[in-house]
Design a binder for these strands. Structure first.
Lengths: 229, 229
DNA sequence: AATATAAGTGTTTACTTTACACTTTAATAA
DNA sequence: TTATTAAAGTGTAAAGTAAACACTTATATT
């Protein structure tokens, strides 16, 4: 038998809601689903789940992303806790996380199973509860983070072209970026490795593939260097 | 009688822990207390409390800061949720907030009541659980915030001198700042109002008092101007 | 009247960011 | 085979921002 020091205190439901982001068609997308249960059954919702007594909140978020995408080892960061009394129909504290995933790894069979789909961040429908607010907070955190840490690569496949990387940043910041300035900056960081191969799918000329060099990045970090876009 | 949609899910204790910051003797201080109950009775702890079924998490944080300082209308911002399974001896999710208060308004009788004291941020003892981590996260959030929004004023009395304001920023960033560059920058923002009165307590010459002009600030914000240090 | 001490003040240099337009490559069509 | 087309790729100048730097001023105290 275990002692309880806090037994006179209230216990609450604790959930995680995940803003699962992917990148395709030159735009950030978010995975949302039609809610399969009451309350608000059928409303558009982020991917969520309840935190189990025996798992950490981070682990709950990882589990939820895994459940709904089939992807492991995702980049995950906390957005914050949402704790208004009436944010759900019952009293539920929700802790929001955003995840950056390579959309190509997405297990599409899960889309059917959960009635989920990838929607452009610029064209999201109204979401249930405070989920739209969570997305809004996510975008501004992502903008700040991406300006300071090369996290965009989590949204891309191992190889990517600079035009593609640029369009990713344009989607994150929701503004056009000058091609020359972008290349200068990103290449100056010296964390990209140019490959010999070209992607010929978007132009006759073809764009060289690059690869993120994590070793170089970690090494530069250790030297106390900063990165910023 | 109310229906319960989530009744098969676990409920957890949810607490708030507050990093209550004040500024005196040219340094940031944090209010910590000797924990008056088990577990870890007698350990140094942040100011905390449990979230009640009927109050929002934000309100719980406000309540806690009020309880332990006697101050209302404090600047409060969420640091994040801490949810490791074993962070407390029982399963407790904690949501950390930092508060910026004018230390002069602190009700010192509460210090006795709760065995609390203001400790320099550079000289904190080891804190219980993950409270030291919460403080660390707070400082980096505060640094980012203070660089972008004039929140330092919440730590000062209505009137303050520029040398004092500078030492506050130096304490936030834990580094020396050039006097001329600091003044140039802060005055260029055009959100301070110079008063005729001088503070004569720290020099023979005396330093002019200034006052934060919230109207000017809000007005400039509306014009889409940005502030940064 | 001299001294001591913190407050107050501008300018130059380095760095970073922004603006801006033409050339190259290679597949496709004539 | 040559011309066309469309995206990829490249450099420089100007403006703005940040950093470095040292002396003068005011006033209480001796």
């Amino acid at each position: 038998m275990s002692t309880s020091f806090y037994s006179n205190k209230d216990k609450l439901y604790v959930a995680v809601d995940c803003i699962i982001m992917g990148f395709k068609d030159n735009e950030l997308h978010i995975l949302i689903a039609k809610r399969p249960f009451e309350p608000l059954k059928g409303g558009w919702s982020l991917m969520g789940g309840f935190v189990d007594e025996k798992e950490s909140v981070n682990d709950a978020a990882k589990r939820v992303v895994g459940e709904f995408t089939g992807i492991e080892n995702i980049y995950l960061e906390q957005v914050g806790a949402f704790g208004e009394v009436n944010r759900d129909l019952e009293r539920v504290i929700s802790i929001a996380y955003y995840a950056l995933v390579d959309i190509e790894k997405f297990d599409t069979s899960l889309a059917k199973k959960y009635d989920a789909r990838w929607v452009k961040i610029t064209q999201l429908p109204q979401l249930i509860f405070d989920h739209s607010l969570m997305v809004k907070d996510t975008l501004s955190i992502l903008q700040r983070r991406a300006a300071v840490k090369p996290i965009g690569f989590n949204l891309l496949q191992e190889q990517f072209t600079l035009p593609l990387l640029q369009s990713l940043y344009e989607s994150i910041y929701q503004e056009d970026i000058d091609k020359r300035n972008f290349r200068k900056k990103i290449l100056a960081m010296d964390i990209l490795e140019k490959l010999d191969e070209k992607d010929k799918t978007t132009s006759r000329k073809g764009a060289f593939y690059y690869r993120f060099n994590k070793e170089k990045y970690d090494h530069l970090l250790q030297q106390g260097l900063h990165f910023s876009m």
